[in-house]
Design a protein around this nucleic acid. Structure first.
Length: 554
RNA sequence: GCCCCCGUAGCUCAGCAGGAUAGAGCACCGGAUUCCUAAUCCGGGUGCCGCGCGUUCGAAUCGCGCCGGGGGCACCA
């Protein structure tokens, strides 16, 4: 709908230019927005105000010229008003709204999709937690945000790949192996205590016990350096399997798990460093090698090879990101915890040094979650092994409520997640509000079926009967939906969908309370059945992007 | 010390690439159910949009400075 207005406006500007009325240059961005106030029309444009200063002409005068040049063969508009300092307010002909409703039927499950990303390959990398322990509540938010961003992009026409990066080459995995090894010794009756910095938590003991059961005591008297890799591999593998399972239960599935080790297999990192050095981006100092990230706006240069000859995490990460681009992605999106924000500048410097534009990497920061129970903070410490796992949250509050709650705020703002509130099946909990709208429609359709009504095809729908203010409001909401999806994909802001859903459900609930869909009037019933079926379709499509279910009964 | 994010109603937060009288949910008060599920609806809001200056026809939105909160400034990942 917005597109159509933009097209009309563009046509008018073009016409005015051709007739010599307006020295408008092709290529000027034309903006159309939905005004806050209803009396300012269904759509509004500030084009006259924007052009005014450039053309040195009164804005209202420009607005008049534009309005006079409007050509509306499809009779979309009822009228165009010029208001305030020179806004053009477009009022859609009321019956036109319901005429457009047919698109929902035509497009069905695809309604809301667009071709913003057509022909573009995009990758979303998220979660990427080291397999040193089960995913906890902090990972849950990033998991949902990444997942839903991926779904939004898919709806926007991108070819999307979801990837999980496993940092399994560093010393954290060795540390994990050592932790399990010592627990294994203890389980076998040896009197040893856990070295410093070891992972605590019962899952370590469980892994040790499982290994003892599987292999017996064969590892007991072998040198530590020899057996620890074995313990690392075993523990990492088991934990990763658990992570995958927990994610699946949460509705998050990856296309690929990428192991950091892959980057060392063919000395990818070494070759990359040599190449960068050749191009002059790397210099040596005090036995280390530095990447000149300041050349691309970073605040200081960064070490890529340590004094001991080991490449840093950053070095591997540049190699990893180049690997992504080499796989043919036009754009790469990383979902990071907000504590990693300082890393963005150097990462973007890295990809620029490789010849990719800065914009090719977009980073979405996800803020911490404050976990509460009945308003009181839940204490957590990963190191001490005290944390609420993702699995526990999903089991306790349910997948739908958990996902929805994580999507109710911008991802870069702090989020309070109260287990009791999320679990409560009341109006504290917006997910049920929206799902209830879906269930109610299902209920209406059941009642209708009992009385012999089915949802009519659009061309058999007496849509001219949909004239109530609540009906027009519903139709408008339905027709705005594609704009919401596109905006969410463009800005990588999935929370826009939850806000839209709350609004749509509110309009529907209000309508439901005031008017009967199924009545004695067969024609009216048909029209309203089509309308609520369209609402149901939008609820399904939008909740589908959020990965939240659409129950027919509650 | 330097850098990033945040500061909007009692609470939690929206406010889409500056726009016309700043919104929602919660909480609180009152009301609605012979009728498609009351997990619903209807009514009730006097907010220095942290403060100041600037850019602009126009600033919650952009810039600069300050105040307050959080995070980051590794040859850790």
């Amino acid at each position: 709908m917005k597109r159509e207005i933009e097209r009309l406006l563009l046509g008018a500007l073009e016409g005015a230019r051709r007739r010599g009325l307006l020295a408008w240059e092709t290529g000027t961005a034309v903006e159309v927005e939905v005004p806050r106030e209803e009396k300012h029309g269904d759509y509004a444009s500030n084009i006259a105000l924007v052009l005014a200063s450039r053309l040195k002409e009164r804005p209202r005068r420009i607005a008049e010229i534009v309005r006079d040049c409007l050509d509306d063969p499809g009779r979309i508009l009822d009228r165009v008003e010029i208001a305030g300092p020179g806004f053009l307010n477009f009022f859609i002909r009321e019956s036109y709204w319901s005429e457009r409703l047919g698109v929902v039927e035509e497009e069905g499950d695809d309604y809301g999709s667009c071709d913003l990303g057509r022909g573009k390959k995009i990758q979303v990398e998220f979660v990427s937690a080291n397999p040193t322990g089960p995913l906890h509540i902090g990972h849950a938010r990033g998991a949902v945000v990444g997942d839903v961003i991926a779904r939004c992009l898919a709806a926007a026409g991108y070819e999307v790949q979801r990837e999980y990066y496993i940092n399994d080459a560093g010393n954290q995995m060795a540390n994990l192996g050592r932790s399990v090894y010592y627990r294994y010794l203890q389980a076998a009756g040896r009197d040893v205590s856990l070295p410093e910095n070891c992972y605590q938590g019962d899952y370590i003991k469980d892994l040790a016990a499982a290994l003892l059961k599987r292999d017996g005591t064969v590892h007991l008297d072998r040198p530590e350096e020899e057996v620890i890799p074995l313990f690392s591999d075993y523990a990492g593998g088991e934990i990763l399997a658990g992570i995958k399972e927990d994610l699946r239960a949460f509705g998050v599935v990856f296309d690929r798990y990428f192991s950091e080790k892959e980057l060392y297999r063919d000395d990818t990192v070494g070759k990359l460093l040599a190449e960068l050095e050749e191009r002059g981006f790397i210099y040596r100092e005090d036995g280390t090698r530095w990447f000149r990230t300041t050349a691309f706006g970073d605040e200081k240069d960064r070490v890529v090879v340590r004094q001991n000859g080991e490449p840093t995490y950053f070095a591997a990460d540049i190699a990893y990101h180049r690997n992504k681009f080499q796989r043919g992605f036009d754009e790469v999106i990383d979902i990071w915890g907000a504590d990693h924000h300082g890393y963005i500048a150097r990462m973007q410097a890295g990809i620029q040094a490789l010849g990719y534009p800065k914009e090719a990497l977009r980073v979405v920061l996800v803020q911490l979650v404050n976990l509460l129970r009945d308003g009181r903070p839940v204490a957590m410490s990963t190191r001490a092994g005290e944390f609420v796992t993702l699995r526990e949250v999903v089991d306790e509050v349910g997948r739908d409520a958990a996902r929805y709650n994580f999507l109710m705020r911008r991802s870069d703002s702090h989020l309070d997640f109260d287990l009791e509130v999320a679990k409560r099946q009341s109006n504290d909990n917006p997910v049920y509000y929206v799902q209830y709208a879906h269930a109610r429609i299902a209920s209406i359709l059941r009642t209708a079926a009992q009385k012999g009504f089915t949802v009519p095809a659009f061309r058999e729908t007496p849509r001219h009967l949909l004239t109530l203010p609540e009906e027009i409001a519903l139709i408008k909401a339905i027709l705005h939906y594609p704009e919401i999806v596109e905006g969410a994909a463009r800005a990588l802001e999935p929370h826009r969908l939850t806000f839209f859903l709350n609004d749509l459900a509110a309009v529907f609930h209000s309508y439901y309370n005031k008017h009967k869909v199924v009545s004695e009037d067969a024609e009216l019933t048909k029209a309203r059945l089509f309308l609520v079926a369209a609402v149901r379709q939008v609820l399904r499509n939008a909740l589908g992007i959020l990965g939240v279910s659409t129950p027919d009964q509650m």
